[in-house]
C-alpha cells in the first residue's frame, strides 16, 4: 500500500482511482522496449501474457522459498522509526474512521463459526508484540511496533479449514488483499490492535490491521472489515493491477 508519490492532493480520490485504472491499461506496456527495438510494442498482448506468466512463476518460487519456521528479524525499541510513515492509496487527510464499539469483523468462507467478532473478543485473547521492519514495494522501509492476536489462533477459534489455499482480507477503506494459508499460519502474522503501547491510531489502520512481517507493505491491510477463508483465488487491490500476488520478503 503505497504510491503517495503518485497522488496529487488537489484531485479528488475518485478521479485518482480512475486515473490509476487507465494507467493500469498501459501498465505492462513497453515504453522502454520500443526504445530498444525502434517500434511500438504497446499493442502486443503476447508480451503482457508473457510477463504475467513470469509473474506467476515468480509467485511459485516465492512460495517455495517461504518457510513457516523462518522468522523476520525483531528489533530493539531504540530502532523504531519515528514517526512511522502513513501510507495508503490515498492521502492521510482521507483516512476513514469507525466507532470502535460498533465495529465488527465479518468472518466468512470455509469456517465453522461465521459469527462476527467484536474488539472486546480480540482483546480477551493473548496478545503478541513485534518490532519488525515494514518494507514497501517502492523500496523504502520503516521499523514499527505492533501487537495483537496471532492470525493462526483466530483461524483455529473460528474453525477455519486450515488446508484451504487462501485467506482474503477486505477493508472498509475499499482496500483488499489476500495471502497464502502458509503465511496466514506463520507465528509472526498477527491481527494488530495496538501500535506501541496504545490502541492502533486511525492513520495506522484503526481498529485492526493485519501485520505480516514476511510480506511487503501492500500485503499488510489496514482498516480490516472481513476475513474469508477460500480456495478461490481472491486477488487484491494492487495485485489486480499488476503487483505480484505473493509479495513475500
Amino acid at each position: 500500500m503505497s504510491h503517495n508519490r503518485l497522488d496529487r492532493s488537489a484531485i479528488a480520490p475518485e478521479l485518482r482511482r480512475i486515473e490509476r485504472r487507465l494507467m493500469l491499461k498501459g501498465a505492462l506496456s513497453l515504453g522502454g522496449l520500443s526504445m530498444l527495438s525502434g517500434c511500438a510494442l504497446d499493442d502486443e498482448p503476447s508480451v503482457e501474457r508473457a510477463l504475467s506468466a513470469m509473474s506467476r512463476f515468480t509467485d511459485r518460487m516465492q512460495a517455495l522459498l517461504f518457510s513457516r519456521q523462518r522468522l523476520a528479524r525483531e528489533f530493539d525499541a531504540s530502532r523504531i522509526t519515528h514517526p512511522f510513515p502513513f501510507n495508503a492509496y490515498y492521502d492521510e487527510s482521507e483516512v476513514r474512521t469507525v466507532d470502535p464499539a460498533g465495529w465488527r469483523l465479518d468472518v466468512g468462507g470455509l469456517v465453522s463459526d461465521r459469527r462476527p467478532w467484536s474488539l472486546a473478543q480480540f482483546r480477551a485473547l493473548p496478545q503478541k508484540r513485534q518490532i519488525t521492519r515494514h518494507i514497501c514495494v517502492e523500496g523504502w522501509s520503516a521499523i514499527g511496533d505492533w501487537s495483537g492476536v496471532p492470525l493462526s489462533m483466530f483461524l483455529q477459534k473460528v474453525g477455519a479449514d486450515l488446508r484451504a489455499k487462501y485467506v482474503n482480507f477486505r477493508c472498509f477503506d475499499d482496500y483488499s488483499t489476500s495471502i497464502d494459508m502458509a503465511t496466514a499460519l506463520h507465528p509472526q502474522t498477527i491481527l494488530a490492535l495496538d501500535y506501541g503501547d496504545r490502541a492502533l491510531p486511525p492513520a495506522y489502520g484503526a481498529p485492526m490491521k493485519v501485520r505480516i512481517p514476511t510480506k511487503l507493505g501492500y500485503k499488510n491491510p489496514k482498516y480490516l472489515a472481513s476475513i474469508e477463508v477460500t480456495n478461490r483465488f481472491p486477488g487484491g487491490y494492487w495485485e489486480d493491477q499488476g503487483y505480484d500476488w505473493f509479495g513475500g520478503s
Binding site: 504510491h3 494507467m23 513497453l30 515504453g31 504475467s52 499488476g242
Partner: peptide
C-alpha cells in the same frame, strides 16, 4: 522500462 512501478517489477 515497464511504464509504472508494477510494470517495472514485472
Amino acid at each position: 522500462l515497464g511504464g509504472w512501478l508494477g510494470g517495472g517489477i514485472a
